[in-house]
Design a protein around this nucleic acid. Structure first.
Length: 552
RNA sequence: GCGCCUGUAGCUCAGCUGGAUAGAGCAACGGACUUCUAAUCCGUAGGUCGUAGGUUCGAAUCCUACCAGGCGUACCA
């Protein structure tokens, strides 16, 4: 919509130049925005102000010149205001025609091609398969998934991936924890180390093994048992994670195993490759990456004295692998507690010869779980409601996802379980869903009264004349731009703020205007408008992975 | 010590990568249901945008310093 306005302004500038009123060197970038106050106009531009310097004129004078040459059938009013803004009002026809187009697009309304098919991978969650997901992972999952949906809508060629850290000490602890619980279940006295996994779920897994295998591992030495326990526990937990995420409406295009990078020698090859480039050296019996040469605070160990590879080491191979698969842009979501990891990963990308701009790490801040204002304990001890599943079971998928997505992801999030459950305006998700249900209800009423409605662009929208109606139409038509900006900035919370604003306009409109009335033409036109609102809510919710119920 | 994030109404947060008189919701107060869902709507009140400088036509937004909170600063993941 804004590009159409840009063209109109550009024409005016050209005409002003031909008339000798403006020099236009350099030709200014035409920024079209919405005025702060809707009453000022539908669009505004600040070109006159940005040109002030090069034209050596007062911005107001420039604005007057430009305004004189602004001519277009879609324009209904041109005004110079404030320090030199040019405010434009568009004709009703301009908006009504676009509203029809929006409805025609239906589920595709909001789609754009700003991404131009760029191949992007978003890696998120990637929690270690050593226990169930907690609330923090839930936020990462919701944000990553929504971001993927938004970027797809904005025309990116998108893939999502979960990186499974199935190698290393954590796995050994996991296997050993399970083995110990197994022996305990079979009546042996065990000593359970502090650094092992103490959760109840370990006992459940051990119990499964007892049921399936009996005491066959009891007689074997530890070294012979551990590989089985490690794998069994990991597979079980991973299956649980996948199931929990699916119930949370989060699925991945690919699950990538760290182990596989060792099996196909990718890690070795990556080290050799970096060595060849001179980015690697040995010191104190360990192998180091010269990451300090690329803006990291210090060099990082990739192979320990013990000969074991660090997590960071396989991560190098992993990201090399991602680029090898043709991704042009890599996005990683990480918990904010891992932010120290950012510079060294960027260093890796640069050491591999890539621009670090292709790599974007989004930090997702902590979630504080509250219950009626009181902080809920998040300790790994058997505190209640620490897992994602527990929270989802209590408040529902829609509310949980909404809460995770309503705030900018780089601020701490207070997630109050009581508020999330409440069906009041305290809880915006119900407010928005209610609008959708309300619209559906109006359509049911219309049907009962025998109104012959169908989604046709033959409809006569001329009866829509109320300013309030056009305010809603403008809000609807802004949706594609909101998606675009949300995609560009990779900020998911914009969608929820947008929906809230749009829907509150509808609720106000509803209370002041009757949709189904004896005026047949007006009824049909208003139903068309409501249908457009309904489509926008659905499409917006679709991006957030939230359902739009027809009845509440 | 160094680095990252945050600081906007009593509370929770927006503020569109420099624009016009800084906005919502909640809480408070006062109103609106014989009409399509009152899970709603309308109104009132509420501010030194952490502090101090700087950059310019113009700063909540950019820069610097400081203050406060959170998180990092591993041959853990």
């Amino acid at each position: 919509m804004k590009t159409a306005i840009q063209t109109i302004i550009q024409d005016a500038l050209e005409k002003a130049r031909q008339a000798g009123e403006l020099e236009l060197s350099p030709f200014p970038e035409i920024v079209v925005e919405k005025p702060k106050d809707e009453k000022m106009g539908d669009f505004s531009t600040n070109v006159a102000m940005t040109m002030a310097k090069s034209e050596r004129k007062n911005p107001k004078v420039i604005a007057e010149s430009v305004a004189r040459y602004l001519e277009n059938g879609d324009l209904s009013q041109v005004e110079v205001a404030g320090p030199g803004f040019i405010n434009l009002k568009m004709s009703h026809e301009f908006f009504l025609q676009r509203l029809k187009n929006a409805v025609k697009q239906g589920n595709d309304f909001g789609q754009s091609d700003v991404g131009q098919g760029t191949k992007v991978m978003i890696e998120f969650v990637s929690a270690n398969p050593t226990g169930p997901l907690h609330v923090g992972h839930g936020r990462g999952a919701a944000v990553g998934d929504a971001l993927a949906r938004i970027l797809r809508k904005a025309g990116y060629d998108l893939s999502t991936e979960y990186y499974i850290n199935d190698v290393g000490n954590q796995m050994n602890f996991l296997g050993r924890s399970t083995w110990l619980r197994y022996r305990e279940l079979l009546g042996e006295a065990i000593e359970f180390p502090d650094d092992h996994y103490r959760g109840e779920y370990i006992k459940d897994i051990a119990n499964e093994i007892v049921e399936q295998k009996g005491d066959e591992f009891l007689k074997k030495p530890e070294e012979e048992c551990l590989p089985f326990f490690r794998k069994y526990a990991k597979d079980t937990i991973l299956k649980g994670i996948e199931k929990d995420l699916a119930e949370f409406r989060v699925t991945f295009d690919n699950w990538f195993s760290e182990q596989s990078l060792y099996e196909d020698n990718s890690v070795e090859k990556a080290i050799e490759w970096l060595k060849g480039k001179g980015h690697i050296y040995e010191k104190d019996g360990a192998v180091w990456l010269k990451s300090s040469a690329f803006d990291d605070d210090k060099d990082r160990v990739i192979v320990k004295q013990s000969g074991e590879k660090t997590y960071f080491c396989s991560d190098i191979a992993y990201h090399q692998n991602k680029i090898g698969r043709g991704f042009e842009k890599l996005v990683n979501l990480m918990g904010a507690d891992h932010h120290g990891y950012v510079p060294r990963m960027e260093a890796v990308l640069e050491a591999m010869g890539y621009d670090k701009k292709i790599f974007k790490i989004l930090l997702v801040q902590f979630v504080s779980l509250l219950r009626a204002g009181e902080k809920v304990s998040m300790s790994t001890r058997s505190g209640e409601f620490e897992t994602l599943t527990d929270v989802v079971n209590e408040v529902g998928v829609d509310a949980a996802r909404y809460y995770f997505l309503m705030r900018s992801s780089d601020t701490h999030l207070d997630f109050d379980l009581e508020l999330a459950k409440k069906e009041t305006p305290d809880n915006p998700v119900f407010y928005i869903q209610y609008a959708h249900a309300r619209i559906c209800s109006i359509f049911r009423t219309a049907e009962e009264k025998g109104v012959a409605w169908n989604r046709s662009d033959e409809v006569n929208l001329a009866p829509l004349v109320d300013e309030e109606e056009f305010a809603i139409i403008r809000a609807i038509l802004a949706f594609p731009e909101v998606v675009e900006k949300s995609a560009r900035a990779m900020e998911v919370h914009r969608i929820s703020h947008y929906l809230l604003d749009m829907v509150s306009r509808f609720h106000g409109y509803y209370s002041r205007h009757r949709v189904v009335s004896d005026d047949k033409a007006l009824t049909l036109a208003r139903l068309f408008l409501l249908d457009a609102i309904r489509i926008t809510i659905r499409n917006g919710f679709e991006l957030m992975g939230i359902s739009a119920p027809e009845k509440m």
